[in-house]
Structure formats: structure tokens, C-alpha cells
């Protein structure tokens, strides 16, 4: 069984973000980078599937500058067999249509039986890439899955809808699924597996070899949101903070009435 999982490296969302000099994106210096949280679930699910069928070849693909190899190594240490690094120093300027085109161009003649992606990235969150890849490859696509089962070529998944309801959906492989948080429990790479991962193949492909389309979106401006007025910020010693908050709650709410 041939499996592809697509992974993105994103900044830690707890970071303090600044705008770059051009005002077109966030400043990438001084940021800590990690695996997109949604992709941790898709990497885990791809590995679980390979373990279930007992054989196969699992490729992790990621697009970005050289620094993404660190995160790709985590995916390899978790259990992916090989990595494909699409080298692109301007990945942040690509729109979802271009990113999906790059992945589809890579995957079109590889006959993957299953493709896993996160349902969105934590930084841009368009939620488009996985669906677009599936449509470009003419594959069935099930988005936002919180439950996945594979039985003899049939994918049975549950999509998460609003308000705690799930939709039960099935399709015949090859299928692309986009993974929602909570789908499984992503494993931590063990030290022996981290060592083993260093020997796994990590091929580099230049983005120019896979990109055949032009962007459809432009970002005239990126900015920090305005702070909501009226919000009070309390800082200081815990004891003082408690007194200040209790006073405020008495003045402005009826919870002690």
C-alpha cells in the first residue's frame, strides 16, 4: 500500500508575532517552528494505517525552506518511511491553489492508495489545500474526520459537524482525508526511532519542477488586530489580583447577588 501524508511546518502559535518590513507577512525571525497540529494527527493516522495493513510505503511531503527538514525528521521518527522536501523559500507567498497544484503534480503518477492531510494549517487556516488536491487528482475526499477505519479498500470515516454531531461517510480507496484535531493520539518519537530516522531518505525537489500554475490571490496587507476597547488588564501580585478581581465582579456582575 502506498500512502502519502502532507505536512506543514508552522510557527508556534504562542509566539509573539510581528509584521515584516513589507507589511505582507509575519516576520519569520525569532519564531519557534513546529509541526502543524492538524498534521500530527494525519501523520499518526497514516502510520496507524500502515501498521494495520502490515506492509506499505509511507511518504511524507512538505513544502518550504530548508528549516522544514527538522519537522520532517519528526514525521520520519514517528514512522514515515521517506520524505520529500519541496524546496521553496517563498512558500509563504503561495496561495492554497498553488500549494495544492504542487502536491497534485507530485502525486499524479505515483498511484497513492491513501492521502492524508490536516484539515487546515494553524497559521493560514484556509482549509482548502487537501480538498483541492483531491479534486485535482479526481479522488473522493472526506474532510474534517474524527474517526477513521480502513477495511479491505473501503474507508469508513466520521466527519465532525457543528454542535457535537458527526456524519458517517464512506468511500472506496484511493481516498484523500483531511484530519481534525482529536482523531487519534499522536505518538512521541522514541530515541531509537529518532536515530533510525536520520538514515531515512529525505529527497529534495525544487518547487520550480512542480509548480505549473499562477497564484489566484494577493495579500495587499497584513496587520495586528485592534485591541477591543474596555478590556481591563490586571497585572501584579496574585493576592492583589484576587482582591481587584473580586471587587470588579461585585461592581460589574450580579454573581454575588
Amino acid at each position: 500500500m502506498k500512502i502519502l501524508v502532507c505536512m506543514k511546518q508552522v510557527p508556534d502559535m504562542e509566539s509573539k508575532f510581528r509584521i515584516n518590513d513589507q507589511g505582507s507577512w509575519y516576520d519569520e525571525s525569532d519564531l519557534a517552528w513546529r509541526m502543524n497540529e492538524y498534521d500530527e494527527y494525519s501523520v499518526e493516522q497514516a502510520i496507524l494505517l500502515k501498521e494495520q495493513v502490515g506492509e506499505g510505503d509511507l511518504t511524507v511531503l512538505s513544502i518550504g525552506p530548508k528549516r522544514i527538514q527538522e519537522t520532517m525528521k519528526k514525521a520520519l521518527a514517528m514512522g514515515c518511511d521517506r520524505g520529500v522536501h519541496v524546496n521553496d523559500v517563498k512558500v509563504h507567498e503561495k496561495d492554497p491553489f498553488e500549494i495544492a497544484s504542487i502536491i497534485a503534480e507530485f502525486a499524479k503518477d505515483k498511484n497513492f492508495d491513501m492521502i492524508f492531510t490536516g484539515m487546515q494549517s494553524q497559521d493560514r487556516g484556509s482549509g482548502q489545500v487537501g480538498v483541492l488536491v483531491a479534486e485535482m487528482l479526481n479522488l473522493p475526499c472526506i474532510t474534517t474526520i474524527v474517526d477513521f477505519a480502513f477495511d479491505n479498500g473501503t474507508v469508513n470515516a466520521k466527519r465532525e459537524l457543528e454542535g457535537g454531531v458527526k456524519a458517517k461517510v464512506s468511500a472506496q480507496a484511493p481516498v484523500l482525508v483531511t484530519c481534525q484535531l482529536g482523531l487519534n493520539s499522536p505518538r512521541y518519537p522514541t530515541l531509537p526511532n529518532i536515530m533510525k530516522a536520520k538514515k531515512k531518505e529525505l529527497a529534495v525537489v525544487e518547487v520550480g519542477d512542480l509548480l505549473t500554475v499562477e497564484s489566484r490571490l494577493e495579500t495587499p496587507k497584513i496587520s495586528l488586530p485592534e485591541k477591543k476597547s474596555g478590556g481591563l488588564i490586571l497585572e501584579g501580585e496574585v493576592g492583589d489580583l484576587v482582591e481587584q478581581l473580586v471587587t470588579l465582579l461585585k461592581e460589574r456582575t450580579t454573581v454575588f447577588a
Binding site: Q122, R124, G125, G127, Q128, L217, S223, P225
Partner: peptide
């Protein structure tokens, strides 16, 4: 995706868990 506002004809979407706002045009 996920438009939250319209500003001077550009659509605004959140980035990085709404820590940033981005104006986008098609």
C-alpha cells in the same frame, strides 16, 4: 476562506489564531 470583515473592498481573514489580520484580494 473565513472572512471576518470587508475593508475598502478587500476581504479580511484571520491568521495565526487571529493574532494577525490579513487583507486578501482575488
Amino acid at each position: 476562506s473565513e472572512v471576518v470583515d470587508i475593508v475598502d473592498g478587500a476581504l479580511v481573514t484571520p491568521v495565526c489564531n487571529a493574532k494577525l489580520r490579513r487583507e486578501i484580494k482575488a
